[in-house]
């Protein structure tokens, strides 16, 4: 049987987390994969502070224990994120799985994390003593590595309110539902006064990492789409050299080609 603690407020949860080695439990959809004997869980489902989707001037704030199904029903959640969420697993999993859990279990194949990378999302991290806001790439470091200290909990995911209107998202999996991604791609494009302000491109699942290369993105910033077209070949070549690939469910050659195809398609959509 699963042993654990049920907290009814964030304060209570953080106290338990500080005093025990309980594992935060936010959905439990990975229990079948990773049901470690002897582990005590801290159940987060009943904590109101983690269950809401709100908006302030700059951010859409999604509570860490908000489920994917709830996000799909919310008018606040941006279409890019909804598109990614709508392809996660199947309805039963989406009813249980959460945004915090998707980051917290440290999978490079997590479908919302690649969107968060492309969207320059942040996470609000809380502990008994303090709270902080961190960029997503400082929270999700690599497969099974999180930038969290003992006693810290992901409380909210912060997505920018503006700038996510032009996007591309593709999940590539072995079948139409219930599939772990072979490769996933999220891109966010920005254009102001005819010049490119953003060309964020994030890749998930390839090479066991979530990848984003801001230095390569910079080569397009400030250019008009026509100017960018001229450097596109170099830009794609730079990605080809940098993208990490490996042998997993699909081979490295496949991962590289598909990542570049999706990247190329993303830019083409916006005239580059």
């Amino acid at each position: 049987m699963v042993n654990g603690y049920t907290a009814s407020s964030l304060k209570e949860a953080l106290t338990i987390l500080a005093e025990t080695n309980a594992v935060p439990y936010a959905g439990g959809t990975d229990l079948m994969l990773e049901n470690r004997p002897g582990v005590k869980y801290l159940f987060l489902k009943k904590i109101p502070e983690l269950r809401s989707i709100t908006a302030d001037e700059r951010y859409i704030r999604i509570g860490a224990a908000v489920t994917f199904t709830e996000a799909l029903a919310s008018p606040l959640v941006p279409p890019l994120m909804k598109e990614a969420v709508s392809h996660i697993a199947a309805p039963a999993i989406r009813n249980a799985g959460t945004f915090g859990g998707n980051i917290g279990n440290g999978s490079d194949k997590a479908d919302t994390v690649v969107v968060e990378f492309a969207a320059d999302a942040k996470a609000r991290i809380v502990s008994k003593e303090k709270e902080r806001i961190a960029d997503i790439d400082k929270v999700f470091l690599s497969r099974k590595h999180l930038g969290l200290s003992d006693g810290e909990l992901i409380a909210e995911i912060l997505l920018p309110r503006k700038g996510l209107e032009r996007y591309a998202y593709t999940k590539v999996g072995g079948r139409q539902s219930q599939a772990v991604s072979f490769v996933s791609f999220a891109g966010v494009f920005g254009l102001e006064n005819g010049r490119i302000t953003n060309a964020a491109a994030a890749f998930g699942a390839a090479g066991d990492a979530v990848q984003r290369y801001r230095d390569i993105e910079k080569s397009l910033i400030g250019k008009t789409p026509d100017e960018a077209k001229k450097v596109k070949a170099d830009y794609l070549r730079a990605y080809e050299e940098r993208i990490l690939v490996n042998q997993s469910r699909v081979g490295p050659e496949y991962q590289r080609i598909v990542c570049l195809n999706l990247l190329n398609d993303f830019l083409s959509r916006f005239g580059v």
Partner: peptide, 8 residues
Amino acid sequence: DTLTGISK
């Protein structure tokens, strides 16, 4: 889908 190889 020639970009991803996925067949529907």
